[in-house]
């Protein structure tokens, strides 16, 4: 009889560094989801008018607990962006003539667009 080795269904991702990184990447979704809910909350607050927006949304963000959560969320969101751009060339390779465009060029183009877009948004938001 052939022998089947047991596989842990709950701790496998700790066995290999690459598995662990993968699991961390998957769990960034928790913070992506939380921030999406925050945006939804903000939209609802804007729809409810001036007073509600400040009282039930913007001022809530300034509490110490919320600030900590926002910091963590922001860091995870940046990590998600970098991890996502890193693997995009694998999912969408571009062939020019015979050769493939190097993955670094595709990822680099993403970074350029990302930075320019972010600067434009920061400008219009009045940050600078």
């Amino acid at each position: 009889m052939a022998y089947v080795r047991p596989v842990s269904k709950t701790t496998w991702y700790l066995k290999d560094r690459n598995y662990t990184i993968h699991m961390i990447n998957e769990l960034t979704s928790v913070f992506i989801g939380l921030y999406a809910l925050l945006l939804l909350w903000g939209i609802g607050a804007v729809a409810s008018g001036d007073k509600a927006y400040y009282q039930f949304f913007l001022e809530c963000l300034t509490s110490p607990g919320m600030l900590v959560l926002l910091w963590v969320t922001t860091i995870v969101i940046f990590y998600h962006a970098i991890a996502w751009f890193k693997v995009t060339p694998k999912a969408m390779p571009i062939q020019k003539g015979e050769a493939f465009v190097p993955g670094g060029v595709i990822a680099g183009a993403h970074y350029v667009i990302w930075v320019l877009f972010s600067l434009v948004v920061l400008y219009f938001a009045g940050v600078f």
């Binding site: 921030y35 925050l38 963000l61 919320m66 926002l70 969101i77 962006a81 751009f85 990302w114 972010s118």
Partner: peptide, 20 residues
């Protein structure tokens, strides 16, 4: 995933600045 990679960092940054 693609959209949030482009858009979420700057939005989160603005939220963070506003909250601070």
């Amino acid at each position: 995933g693609t959209l949030t990679a482009f858009v979420f960092p700057v939005l989160a940054l603005i939220t963070l600045i506003a909250a601070h």
